[in-house]
Design a protein around this nucleic acid. Structure first.
Length: 575
DNA sequence: GCCGTTTTCGGCCCGACTGTTTTCAGTCG
């Protein structure tokens, strides 16, 4: 049983309870517990084994028992019993925009609607319109929600959402009367995918902002337009919500709309304990007197906390860390001074020459660069002779470049199915930097892939494991392997794990980063650039690392190049 | 179902917008 299975059963439990008129607080309890498990940086089975389940926030005796049952039997009897009483296709209706539990329950109980097709039919034949408080506008909205749901893609990758947001914000900042305009929500938290955009504008003239907003280029539909809040859907399918606030509420609103929901609930619970109320308009005492809210710092300070970086606001311990003043000093993009995984046109799938890559890296301020083309198992990858020739070439170019940037000889060597490496060990030992990666046999059983990675780590010639889980977002899941075993081996042998910053990889994940740091494993944030434009993607790797609580200390390529060489010599002495 | 400086009962974040009403229920974030 994976965490995702537990999450699914707990979430469905919440949905069914809600649909059948269960206690709304019980609904929320299941939902919160599901959220906690979903963002847990380790297998929930591990916590269960150690008897620590109830130490998780929102997990008490009841849900701990449920999780135990799920882990041991694969089922959750209470859930199964409830789900049996509900038509198979009905929970899906809750995913429809503008359709909640009350609407679904009414359509089901009054009209016998059991699935999406039946709801669509009820829109058409007029039966839905006979439900209480159901007029023509709502029927139309539901009909459109069904159409959108049927044609809906997945969440948008964060790098794409970032560019949509920046484009809109730039235009909104030019509207007369606008003081500030920023993105909040999951984009500001730098989640790897974004469901919708939350934009905030500080202005004393909201009408002008709203008029400009609904007319922005790319707006396909206006979903709602009010005095302080409007929603649109872009041609790209992305929903964008805009809130306009007076300057004195800016910090409170930014805090509120950045979320996450779980983080805000935790924060507000603290406020309630102190007799305070936090809303998007500010912090207020019992008498309703305003105590602050112009900045986020004021909001956190009001409940005795240090300001918390948005990337940490997932209610996974950041509130406690802020209280204890033990928040990590997160790694910043400017801390990263080298790139230790780039390809050149020596790899078949790369487009730029070593010279072009080096020039762009220099322009971006990178002080060193490891040239790591593919080894011979990849089509047109380097064999031993090809690599020897490239080593000479890179060394000669390095002398000419005089440190702008320093060039390191290297390779991205394939880890073969048996865990051996694709090039002779003595040749790999000559290189400045060796990335070892899996590019085949993704469907091997977990144990075999784990052994494969561990054997590569133990080879004595590998500096880093490239894109350790092999996932490609929206395309290919991670191959199954035991992350804990790999972390243990990496820590023991001083091998780094990569955060591959290609936007469709982001591998390690944020959670894995956090586990790596806890295991004492160093991380490298690499572009895996296949052309010059990819070099700047390091930014997205830094976002992941920040979400994984990493400091510059945890990230190897924040160090000067001399540190890497020294570290390698020390490793050679000890192995 | 969770939780506790209000601690084993009685609370549980809070406000905007829409569409439906003639004061508010439902949904959303």
């Amino acid at each position: 049983m994976e965490n995702a299975d537990v999450v699914r059963l707990l979430s469905e439990m919440a949905d069914v309870l809600e649909l059948t008129g269960g206690n709304p607080f019980k609904v929320r309890a299941y939902r919160q517990a599901a959220q906690v498990i979903d963002t847990l940086p380790e297998p929930v089975s591990e916590l269960w084994r150690r008897g620590r389940l109830t130490e998780l926030p929102s997990v008490g005796a009841g849900i701990a028992t449920a999780i135990t049952e799920i882990l041991c039997t694969g089922h959750f009897e209470k859930h199964d019993r409830l789900v049996r009483g509900v038509p198979l296709g009905i929970l899906e209706l809750l995913r429809l925009e503008g359709v909640g539990p009350r609407t679904v329950a009414a359509a089901w109980q009054e009209l016998g609607v059991q699935d999406l097709a039946a709801l669509a039919a009820a829109c058409e034949d007029g039966s839905l319109a006979r439900l209480p408080r159901m007029g023509p506008a709502r029927v139309k909205a539901i009909r459109e929600a069904i159409a959108r749901y049927r044609g809906r893609g997945t969440r948008m990758p964060v790098h794409r959402a970032y560019f949509y947001a920046e484009g809109m914000l730039e235009r909104l900042r030019r509207v007369p009367g606008v003081l500030r305009a920023e993105a909040a929500g999951s984009l500001r938290r730098r989640r790897e995918t974004v469901g919708d955009l939350d934009l905030l504008v500080s202005s004393k003239r909201p009408e002008a902002v709203m008029r400009a907003f609904v007319q922005l280029p790319g707006v396909a539909h206006v979903l709602a337009q009010g005095a302080t809040r409007s929603s649109v859907r872009l041609d790209a399918g992305l929903q964008v919500d805009l809130r306009v606030l007076p300057p004195e509420s800016w910090g409170a609103a930014l805090q509120y709309f950045t979320g996450s929901k779980a983080h805000n609930i935790g924060l507000r619970a603290r406020a309630v304990k102190l007799g305070l109320k936090i809303s998007e308009y500010g912090v207020f005492d019992r008498q309703g007197a305003r105590l602050g809210g112009a900045t986020e710092e004021e909001v956190y300070r009001a409940v005795g906390l240090a300001w918390i970086p948005p990337e940490l606001r997932e209610d996974t311990g950041e509130l406690e860390a802020a209280e204890a003043d033990t928040l990590p000093a997160l790694v910043d993009e400017s801390d990263v001074v080298g790139d230790l995984h780039v390809h050149t046109d020596a790899s078949t799938d790369a487009r730029s020459s070593i010279e072009e890559i080096a020039a762009e890296a220099d322009r971006l301020g990178r002080r060193y660069l490891a040239v790591t083309d593919h080894s011979k198992s990849r089509p047109l990858g380097l064999d031993a002779d090809g690599l020897r020739a490239q080593i000479e070439y890179v060394r000669a170019l390095d002398r000419r470049l005089r440190g702008r940037p320093r060039l390191l000889t290297g390779v991205e060597v394939d880890i073969l199915p048996d865990g051996s490496l694709d090039l002779p060990l003595e040749l790999l030992a000559e290189l400045d930097w060796v990335v070892a990666s899996i590019h085949s046999h993704f469907r091997d059983p977990s144990g075999r892939t784990t052994d494969r990675l561990v054997r590569a780590i133990r080879s004595g010639v590998v500096d880093a494991i490239g894109h350790p889980s092999g996932r490609q977002i929206g395309k290919r899941d991670a191959y199954p392997f035991d992350l804990h075993a790999v972390l243990e081996a990496a820590a023991a042998h001083g091998v780094a794990l990569e955060v591959n910053a290609m936007p469709d990889r982001l591998d390690l994940t944020d959670r894995a980063c956090r586990l790596a740091a806890e295991a004492g494993v160093r991380v490298v944030i690499d572009s895996d650039a296949h052309n010059t434009s990819h070099l700047a993607n390091v930014r997205y790797g830094v976002w992941v690392a920040r979400r994984g609580w990493l400091t510059a200390h945890d990230v190897l390529n924040t160090r000067p190049v001399a540190h890497l060489a020294r570290r390698r010599r020390e490793a050679e002495v000890t192995t």
